[in-house]
Simulated scan of single mutants.
Amino acid sequence: MTEMLDQPTPKMRRQIPGLGSDPGSVRQRIEAMEQLLERMFVIPGINKPVGLDVILDIIPGIGTISAAALGSYIAWEARNLRMSKWQVARMAGNIGFDMLLGLIPWVGAIPDFFFRSNTRNVRIIKQHLDKHHPETRTIDVSARR
């Protein structure tokens, strides 16, 4: 019985949105991860979104490495989409730069608050998907503001 729960079947992948390996499912997953890492909630007063990436940077060492590992998931999805090595390397550079900023205890959260490497990486993937898989395109309401 537990063996059935370990691996989703093709039928389950079709029924549960975002679980498949198709470009549309990948878009859903990376957008959800970016939401978690960069825009989990809005700081009242300054009206600026904050996510797990900035929160983890407050924890010296371990938090920064954890945030980089979570951000690397987005680059891994890009690799699975067979994006060019240049694009994946650019995303890795964003993650590395973000990690270097976060290595400065406490103060590292401030530049990370403005750099937003995960948002940059999701933008790279979305440009690729819009060009090569236009059927996955969604309307971004926040871009119109």
Rank of each mutant, 00 (worst) to 15 (best):
M1H: 04
E3G: 08
M4R: 15
M4S: 06
L5K: 00
D6L: 10
D6S: 08
T9M: 06
T9V: 01
P10T: 12
K11D: 03
K11M: 04
M12E: 09
R13Y: 01
R14W: 13
Q15N: 06
I16M: 11
I16L: 13
L19E: 09
L19G: 10
L19A: 15
S21T: 12
S21G: 12
S25W: 00
S25A: 13
V26N: 03
I30M: 15
E31S: 09
Q35P: 03
L37Q: 00
E38S: 05
E38P: 00
M40G: 02
M40D: 03
M40L: 10
F41N: 04
G45N: 00
I46V: 11
N47H: 10
P49M: 04
P49C: 00
P49A: 04
G51F: 00
L52T: 00
L52P: 03
I55D: 02
I55G: 02
D57L: 02
I58Q: 05
I59S: 07
I59Y: 05
P60R: 07
P60M: 07
G61I: 09
I62D: 02
G63P: 05
G63A: 11
G63Q: 05
T64A: 07
S66W: 07
S66I: 10
A67Y: 08
A67E: 01
L70I: 07
L70R: 06
L70T: 06
G71E: 10
Y73D: 10
Y73W: 13
Y73L: 14
A75H: 09
A75Q: 14
E77Y: 15
A78N: 10
A78D: 13
A78S: 13
A78C: 14
N80V: 11
L81M: 04
L81K: 01
R82K: 07
M83I: 11
S84I: 10
K85D: 13
K85R: 12
A89E: 13
R90N: 13
M91V: 11
A92Y: 06
G93W: 06
N94Q: 03
G96I: 10
G96P: 01
D98N: 03
D98K: 00
D98M: 04
M99P: 01
L100E: 02
L101D: 04
G102S: 06
P105G: 07
W106Y: 12
V107S: 07
I110T: 02
I110Y: 02
I110H: 02
D112E: 05
D112H: 00
D112F: 05
D112L: 03
F113G: 03
F113D: 04
F114W: 04
R116I: 01
S117H: 05
S117W: 08
S117P: 02
N118P: 03
T119N: 11
N121P: 12
I125S: 15
L129D: 00
L129H: 06
L129A: 09
D130R: 15
D130T: 12
K131W: 00
K131M: 08
H132F: 08
E135F: 13
T136G: 07
T138C: 09
I139T: 12
D140F: 08
V141K: 12
V141S: 11
S142E: 15
S142R: 12
A143P: 08
R145K: 15
R145S: 12
